[in-house]
């Protein structure tokens, strides 16, 4: 829902329950009794994401342990068969357009919500969040019937629908970034001769830049991954990747889906690792200097 602020990582909280009672030797590092449940939760969290990798390279349709061979057939299908390649291109189109629109619409609202306090702020935020919490099927049938009346189906219908579903993430991430902006910085910039537009470009965008970037990433993923609404709004000539995957999964077990997932996993985890490492280095540097 909200990207964790880097500062959350940097601030090492002290022992919340206080130091151990005196008179006892300091414990050597050993596994705490809580380590086992945490390990189980970690497995629960990551197993479904990781299992797709061996699945995508196993030759048969059924994954076995130990794996009975190695094959890149499913990747070949993914990158050569037109139904998969066109689905990927369609998804890319829709996701990029959604990202641009969601940022253009959501970032100003996020800044307005985060920087100053004004009446009705909570109400607006509540409204903004409803697309996230509303049952997808209800949203889907509603959009299906209303968008059809204005012939907003297929590519543009999907972009419109995905923008609605993605914009809350942009608003929330930009808003939490904007909370770090002191409103007097804006007054200061104005008094130093910057017009409102230049304040936005020279102060707001640089300071909220990280929030806008991660909001854009969330928007992209939301669109890229959206199934339920897309099922209603695609037309036969314009399927997105999740729609294609859903159709395949309902018919039979198709490891091409695992190949898609592995590719995505590779891209997103490397982006995440890069972000973490960069943040880590910067924190370290800041600590040395500060």
């Amino acid at each position: 829902m909200s990207a964790p602020a880097r500062s959350d990582l940097a601030a090492a909280p002290a022992d919340p329950v206080g130091p151990p009672p005196p008179g006892r030797p300091a414990r050597r590092r050993r596994l705490r009794p809580g380590a086992l449940p945490v390990a189980v939760i970690v497995i629960l969290l990551v197993l479904p994401s990781l299992i797709v990798v061996p699945m995508s390279v196993s030759p048969g349709e059924i994954l076995r342990f130990p794996p009975d061979g190695f094959s890149l057939d499913w990747y070949r299908t993914l990158f050569t068969e037109p139904q998969w390649t066109s689905a990927m291109l369609n998804s890319l189109q829709v996701a990029l357009a959604t990202t641009v629109l969601a940022v253009l619409i959501g970032a100003p609202a996020g800044l307005a919500l985060g920087i100053r306090e004004w009446r009705g702020r909570g109400l607006l935020l509540g409204l903004v969040l409803t697309p996230v919490v509303a049952p997808p099927v209800v949203v889907a049938i509603g959009m299906y019937t209303t968008y059809a009346q204005v012939e907003l189906i297929g590519r543009w219908g999907l972009i419109a629908a995905h923008t609605v579903l993605a914009v809350p993430f942009v608003v929330v991430t930009v808003m939490s970034a904007a909370r770090q902006i002191d409103p007097t910085w804006l007054d200061a910039a104005r008094s130093l001769g910057a017009s409102p537009l230049r304040v936005a470009l020279t102060v707001l965008v640089p300071l909220a830049g990280k929030g806008i970037a991660s909001g854009a990433l969330f928007a992209f993923i939301t669109s890229w991954d959206e199934v339920v609404v897309s099922l209603y709004l695609t037309d036969p000539g314009f399927k997105t990747l999740p729609v294609q995957m859903w159709n395949q999964l309902r018919e039979r077990v198709d490891p091409t889906v695992a190949a898609v997932a592995s590719v995505m996993l590779l891209i997103t985890t490397s982006a995440m690792v890069a972000a973490l490492v960069i943040g880590w280095r910067r924190d370290g540097a800041a600590r040395e200097n500060g």
């Binding site: 969290l45 990551v46 197993l47 479904p48 994401s49 299992i51 797709v52 699945m55 994954l63 993923i221 890229w224 991954d225 199934v227 999740p242 995957m245 859903w246 999964l249 077990v253 889906v257 695992a258 898609v260 997932a261 995505m264 996993l265 997103t268 985890t269 995440m272």
Partner: peptide
């Protein structure tokens, strides 16, 4: 990590498991 893996894929992975 789950945020970055397709919801559909994760459900599919459970069927495989």
């Amino acid at each position: 990590l789950p945020f970055w893996t397709s919801l559909l894929v994760r459900s599919y992975a459970w069927t495989v498991l």
